[in-house]
Every structure is written in C-alpha cells, then in structure tokens.
C-alpha cells in the first residue's frame, strides 16, 4: 500500500485551486465567481493543514483559523456589494459591469 505523503495533499490542493481559478475566469455569474474564490481559499487551507501535520507545527492550523475568519468577513461584504449592484443594474452578469471601461 503506497503511503499517503504530503505530495498527495499538495497535488489535491493544486487541482482544487486550478478548478477554482478556472471558475473565476470562465463563469459570468458574479455569485459563481465568488464561490470559486472561496474554493481557492479552501484549497490553500487544505495545504496549510497538511503541512501543519507534516511538519508537526501548529502554526499552520492557526493560520487556517485566520483565513477562515477573513474569508467570512470578505464573503459578507462581497455579497452585500453584489446585492447593491443588483439593485441598480438588475443583473449579476459580470460582463455587464463594465463602467470602468477606459
């Protein structure tokens, strides 16, 4: 039986990260994009915890703690933003939010 090493977890983390980034780049629904960002954060958390276990250092878990907290705050604000935009533009298609066009 091959042992589960840290490499496995790194690989998994990378795959999840890539999927998340593809979501950010390819989807047009603002909320889906946001969720993809959450997944990217999550993959990073996974990597942290894996390394905490691998190196025997609790600091990884402490950092995950913080990341989760910050992610929560960020989600709150971001969703409030989307709701506010929806009120004016009546759409959450991100391609329609192009007022910063130069």
């Amino acid at each position: 039986m091959p042992e589960v090493t840290i490499d496995w977890y790194i690989a998994l983390s990378v795959i999840l990260f890539t999927i998340g980034s593809l979501g950010v780049l390819l989807r047009r629904n603002a909320i889906i994009i946001f969720m993809s960002v959450e997944m990217m954060l999550n993959s990073a958390n996974l990597a942290f915890v894996a390394f905490a276990r691998h190196l025997g250092d609790l600091d990884g878990q402490v950092l995950v703690f913080f990341v989760i907290t910050v992610a929560a705050a960020e989600v709150a604000v971001g969703l409030a933003l989307i709701v506010a935009i929806f009120r004016t533009k009546k759409t959450i298609n991100i391609d329609d939010m192009n007022l910063l066009k130069g």
Partner: peptide, 17 residues
Amino acid sequence: IRRTQTGFARTYALGVF
C-alpha cells in the same frame, strides 16, 4: 494603452492569473 481597460473584470482576472 486605454484599450487594456476593457471594463471586463474577467479580463483583469485573466491578467492577474
């Protein structure tokens, strides 16, 4: 250079990536 300011967030995201 203005042409890079498309206003499309996804293009920006692509650039970052």
